[in-house]
Design a protein around this nucleic acid. Structure first.
Lengths: 215, 215
DNA sequence: AAAAAATGTTAGACTATTCTAACATTAATA
DNA sequence: TATTAATGTTAGAATAGTCTAACATTTTTT
């Protein structure tokens, strides 16, 4: 696969994430490329069985295409973590470099990166890192109330949609993907002292913990 | 500059190393590309003032072209050292990966690599690493006898060409570029306990030390 | 439902990099 | 020196990826 094709696949995968259907226009906007160009590439990727495409219909990744995209995503996320944790670069600095390194062809290199990082399952944004077969780890969300102290989790959902609850989450700046580290758990009332996004410390009551789904 | 142009420049620089004049045929052979293709690229690089070229004449890098080539070489050599020393890859494994990483556009990345390696002046083959301005370090070779203990040097030449001396060097597997680390220096006879290529330990007499030029 | 707007497609062109086939020049040899 | 061999160049075509201009289809609005 060429570098350009890889970038299209990545874009396709990104667009397929948020439910909405994938259009030529959206790809063009994301990659800052004109629609006719996207149209040609879409035909090309379709011939290679990486996407499902029919004129005027919306576009979908095939299993094969999705796997390829996830393998690139794996390289991207491992690289970002490596640049940050091993090389000490700032989180805001790593993306552009990872965009380039993700296209390297070397299993040896990325396996070593993976090894040096201790085979991480999530990047620092809480995004899962696909495995070397392009599989995403099974995301079995757990209520925070069943989690262990000393560990870090990512908020993946809520079990309660009351406005008062959601307003509270907003007030502590907690969103899907936010990091929650359990500092201690109170034996008596099952409340938890937590650190949010590596910054804010606060305490969650048992009721709050029961309504937060984490990974 | 495109990736292809960078590869041509690197080849040009390599060919300019061993004195011989640079021909279209030699570039073609080195890059495994047909002569007419090289011919087009040579015209292109000439327009960009990276090489000096006239029909049927031999080709030369300009100052500008040479500097570009050295900057790529710098990235290549820093990368090889990084892959080996920081990531623990084998010396034979690093070249292909470095061939890819050397084309990354990120001063931030390479500066950090440089920093993590302690601003090395030579790669493990004893090849000098150009600085960030594309300058090669002044190579003022010193007799080993004037060097300090605890430091690492690279063999860059000999001051004696007697067969017996050269045979001795061969017997301890010492070649141009080999690494010599001075462990201790005997006050009494100026002999040196040394470690060669990070492996073999031996002792050099003062006479040997006087005849070895190092960097 | 008809008109207008949005989106998608085709056609044709351009650049970069590569090739093969044919031709030109320089170098080597008889 | 005259041929032959080696090397270099030009011409013309192919592919990947991009563009603009023009045309087609679908969606939205009136």
């Amino acid at each position: 696969m060429t570098l350009t094709e890889e970038n299209y696949l990545k874009a396709l995968h990104r667009l397929s994430q948020n439910g909405e259907s994938i259009s030529v226009k959206r790809i063009a906007a994301l990659l800052d490329i004109k629609m006719p160009t996207v149209n040609s590439m879409v035909k090309n990727l379709s011939e290679k069985k990486l996407i499902k495409y029919e004129k005027y219909k919306s576009i979908e990744l095939t299993e094969k295409g999705r796997k390829q995209a996830l393998l690139i995503l794996r390289k991207h996320r491992l690289t970002e973590l490596f640049l940050k944790d091993v090389m000490g670069l700032g989180w805001e600095e790593v993306h552009d470099i990872a965009e380039q390194i993700e296209h390297l062809q070397s299993d040896l290199f990325f396996n070593r990166v993976d090894e040096m990082l201790g085979y991480p399952k999530f990047d620092p944004h809480g995004e899962p890192i696909p495995d070397s077969q392009g599989r995403l780890p099974q995301l079995k969300a757990t209520p925070l109330s069943l989690c262990q102290s000393g560990k870090k989790y990512q908020l993946s959902g809520v079990l309660n949609n009351d406005a008062s609850f959601l307003t509270y989450l907003n007030s502590v700046d907690l969103q899907l993907g936010s990091q929650i580290e359990i500092i201690t758990i109170q034996e008596f009332d099952k409340s938890m002292a937590v650190k949010l996004n590596g910054k804010t410390k606060t305490v969650f009551s048992a009721l709050i913990c029961q309504n937060l789904l984490v990974l």
